[in-house]
């Protein structure tokens, strides 16, 4: 046996290194990749919405701001006499303060869709209305938050109140995230986050982000 090891120690050490590499990939690298995927998925669609809001915004404000005052009033007269769909908007922009009144334009005529779009965009995915920011639990990302919301889990209190049976039930629905609840100790984290005991939380789970 000793002779075999001596003769083939290079192969054996190589296998050991490969085992280490595989373990590193499983426990470190693949997790990092997952987080990146979550990030890209999370941001999908948002920029498009914001851009759409800009596209929908009536361009009159920007154009008028660039024109000299005389031309602005001329443009306003033309717009008023032609009884275009947005005369009120054009009139509002004859002021030299044309740069400011995005809101004014929104009230007048075709600005309405922009206002609606603006109302939709600002809420970040991680802080839904009527619940806690579950991503504050270490190990929970936007994807898991979406899964939890599908199960109507929205607050730290919900998670803190889980029994073992609840954990098993939820865990069974987490797909490739199975086992995370116990591994990352969500219940304990949620309990501490719910009570707001930051010192105890950071002592046990590290710094809050």
């Amino acid at each position: 046996m000793a002779e075999i090891v001596q003769a083939n120690w290079l192969l054996i050490v190589g296998a050991l290194v490969i085992g280490l590499l595989v373990a590193w990939w499983i426990f470190v690298a693949s997790r990092r990749t997952t987080v990146q995927l979550e990030d890209t998925d999370d941001s999908e669609g948002k920029p498009a919405k914001r851009n759409q809001a800009l596209i929908d915004a009536p361009p009159a404000a920007r154009k008028d701001a660039d024109l000299p005052a005389g031309k602005v009033s001329q443009a306003a007269e033309i717009a008023a006499s032609a009884a275009s769909p947005g005369p009120a908007s054009a009139a509002a922009n004859t002021d030299a303060t044309a740069a400011a009144p995005l809101g004014t334009d929104a009230e007048a005529g075709d600005g309405t869709p922009m206002a609606a779009a603006l109302n939709k965009t600002p809420a970040p995915a991680a802080t839904p209305s009527g619940g806690d920011d579950l991503t504050r639990i270490k190990g929970v990302g936007p994807k898991l938050v979406a899964l939890l919301h599908d199960m109507d889990v929205r607050s730290f209190a919900d998670i803190a109140a889980w029994s073992d049976a609840d954990i098993d039930r939820v865990d069974a629905q987490l797909g490739r995230f199975q086992g995370r609840i116990r591994r990352d100790n969500w219940v304990e984290q949620a309990r501490l986050l719910q009570t707001g005991d930051k010192a105890a939380y950071e002592a046990k789970f590290g710094r809050t982000s």
Binding site: M1, I4, V5, N8, L11, I12, V13, G14, A15, L16, V17, I18, G19, L20, L21, V22, A23, W24, I26, F27, V28, G139, R183, D184
Partner: peptide, 30 residues
């Protein structure tokens, strides 16, 4: 048992030890 098979078993053992070591280092406390 042929020698190559013994070597293979030793390599598998070393691989398993490497996996266990990696788990202890990176996988246990997260």
């Amino acid at each position: 048992m042929p020698i190559w098979m013994e070597v293979l078993v030793l390599m598998l053992l070393a691989y398993a030890v490497g996996l266990g070591l990696g788990w202890a280092i990176w996988g246990r406390d997260t």
